[in-house]
Design a protein around this nucleic acid. Sequence first.
DNA 1: CAGTGGTCTAGACCACAGG
DNA 2: CTGTGGTCTAGACCACTGG
Lengths: 234, 234
Amino acid sequence: MSGVRFNNWQAIQEEVLRRIHAREWKPGDVIPNEADLAREFGCARATVNRALRSLAESGVLERRRKAGTRVALHPVTKATVDVPVIRREVEERGLDHGYERIARHDGAPAPLWTAAAMGLARGVPLLHVTGLHRADGAPYVYEDRWINIATVPEAKAQDFRRTSANEWLLTHAPYTHGDIAFTAMAADGEPAEHLEAAPGAPLFVIERTTWDGDRAITAVRLSYAPGHRVRTTI
Amino acid sequence: MSGVRFNNWQAIQEEVLRRIHAREWKPGDVIPNEADLAREFGCARATVNRALRSLAESGVLERRRKAGTRVALHPVTKATVDVPVIRREVEERGLDHGYERIARHDGAPAPLWTAAAMGLARGVPLLHVTGLHRADGAPYVYEDRWINIATVPEAKAQDFRRTSANEWLLTHAPYTHGDIAFTAMAADGEPAEHLEAAPGAPLFVIERTTWDGDRAITAVRLSYAPGHRVRTTI
DNA sequence: CAGTGGTCTAGACCACAGG
DNA sequence: CTGTGGTCTAGACCACTGG
């Protein structure tokens, strides 16, 4: 019965996926426990654990103590989207990155979406910086940045003319966690103008807020030029 | 010097993050190797490995054999987006899910985007199913689905009137991998009509292609009703 | 209460790549 | 060549939770 030995966790993972794929183990089925699988595969339980834990993280399996491990009934697709610094995002596409600051206003009153995202009262004074990133000269993304001076006072000394707030913050204001949202918005006003997009054109938008513990650092709305796509694999 | 013992990997992970955050270890710095850290923390090397490997997966650290472990210079934000079955996506928001098939056409010629995504010649006959998902009665997402009959012949027997292709495929045609893209598109034609969106309105769009090995299973374009946001944390 | 996964340990060998 | 992370093992104890 045990013609083959599986002595590394990747091989075990593949074998488990093969059984699921071949419908030997169907969605909803409880699969044998770690000890049994270890015996069958001729390896240590820790090795089986490594393989199954990894599959659980990717949503293929569901594991619960005592209840055991089962094939996910509704495999939730987990797409991991890499959101690098914009300069690198552009350079990784093999293009030249350019940046120009558009405006900087210390003490600008927080608009509604910013205040809500940062958990502050509307109208609280923030440092507001807008800028345009280019890829090979073409408009790439419009950065609408709001910085909480109370959390990052060092930002007051920056003019953000040459270095984008995007880049400066990442290396000078480490965050503990953040919220991120993807949506579509119509091009309008200043973003439309700088992105050279027709008013009303659909833009892909990323909104991100980062925190240092319970203190908001910054909120940003990134409006990408028309046609932008974020790709990944699952 | 060793007042505190760190005897579980989460505690070690937090301590490492604390040191990075406190700038004891700066971006680009090489940190001590696993053996040294294990000694310092008073635990086994495997425990340190677990903590550091996890941080490397989330992009905070970069690890290379012999070169050691260093604090990432440009921490790439990895946002994990859950893309569940649409029915569950709606239900998790506490809303009622509804689905109605719009059209089904067996042998429809593949349009350009579909053919390109599936690696097929343009015009190849596919099974084309369109439908609308609703949340509490309101249009939620328009599903434009193309199924490769050559890979999933069982789909021919389905009428997809009550069960969406989205749901049927997930439980009947397991995939090995897939591509996914997020973008913004202007509402137009049939999607606009069924989503009750003004023509030209910006729609958030997910395009996904799934594969069984090297054979394409299905390509889908999901056009969400205006205002849709995909959220996650980082 | 008892079965399951979650984790830790101490030791070992190996693969890779830097110098 | 050698230091580093990557992994496996055999055993152990623990935490959670289903029955």
